[in-house]
């Protein structure tokens, strides 16, 4: 009788333990996290450079790799260093070449990819690399910008190719709404934002503003058509952002 009770007790122990472990380990809630790339209205609608060139874009190809989102606590500070220490991390496996000028003037940002079984929580940091494409319209380059510039009746059709590869470590998106807050069975998004006014400058911004002081302008690229090489330091141009939020950038 005692032996039967003990066997029954051990059996109950095994069943209860199994159920408890099952409940604890399989309770991770998930949703869908989407990754977007955005060249902003500067790319979609064109703009006037700091040196007076009216620029419009036909294609702006950019190739992205190792796109990864993180949940960090404390939140990652891109002003400190490039090391993100995540509690949760998910990412896209492939390399993507996207055209930031795709669509009309009011086109939405470009969907790069998504992860459908992302653990819920606040994805408050993101990392991506800008790499040279191995094939396609941007093969051999990390950025290819194709468009037309006009100034004082002079029209220049241009193709600007950039070969530098960069890694961008960014904190939370800064903009009209907070991004990356993923709830169970919900959809959230993160954005890789590219500020092309940092390359060409912006006539609507004071010339002594830091943005224009650091920008190249378009004049050197117009001269490049006549054989003048353009020296571009992508690390100093800070092309990659998260909305208005800055990123830690390392290029080579």
């Amino acid at each position: 009788m005692v032996k039967a009770s003990l066997i029954l007790g051990i059996a109950i122990l095994v069943v209860v333990g199994t159920v408890l472990i099952g409940c604890g380990g399989g309770g991770t809630e998930t949703g869908t996290l989407q990754f977007y790339a955005n060249g902003e209205d500067f790319v979609r609608q064109g703009f006037v450079s700091k040196d007076g060139w009216s620029i419009s874009f036909d294609h702006v190809y950019i190739t992205l790799a190792d796109v990864t989102a993180y949940q960090t606590d404390p939140p990652y500070d891109p002003h400190s260093d490039g090391v993100i220490q995540p509690e949760v991390e998910i990412g896209l496996d492939d390399v993507y070449t996207v055209d930031l000028a795709e669509g009309g003037e009011d086109a939405p940002p470009i969907l790069v990819g998504e992860v459908q079984d992302a653990e819920v929580g606040h994805y408050n940091a993101i990392y991506w690399e800008m790499v040279r494409a191995s094939s396609g319209p941007a093969a051999g380059h990390s950025i290819v910008i194709i468009g037309t510039a006009e100034k004082g009746g002079q029209v220049v059709d241009f193709t600007i190719s950039i070969d530098e590869e960069c890694g961008y470590s960014c904190g939370e998106y800064v903009g009209d709404e907070r991004k990356g807050i993923l709830q169970e069975d919900g959809v959230a998004d993160l954005e890789m934002t590219f500020h092309f006014d940092h390359i060409f400058g912006d006539a609507d911004t004071p010339l002594d503003d830091d943005l224009n002081l650091g920008a190249i302008g378009f004049e050197p690229f117009a001269d490049a058509a006549e054989g003048e090489p353009v020296d571009i330091n992508m690390t100093e141009l800070h092309l990659g952002h998260v909305g208005e939020g800055h990123c830690y950038c390392l290029c080579e």
Binding site: Q71, G171, E244, G245
Partner: peptide
């Protein structure tokens, strides 16, 4: 723009869920 994160009080809230027991 920029964002600053300020810890207030004890036992700061951790974003996300850990899925523990």
């Amino acid at each position: 723009g920029d964002m600053v994160h300020i810890p207030v009080g004890e036992g700061a809230v951790v974003a996300g869920s850990s899925g523990g027991y």
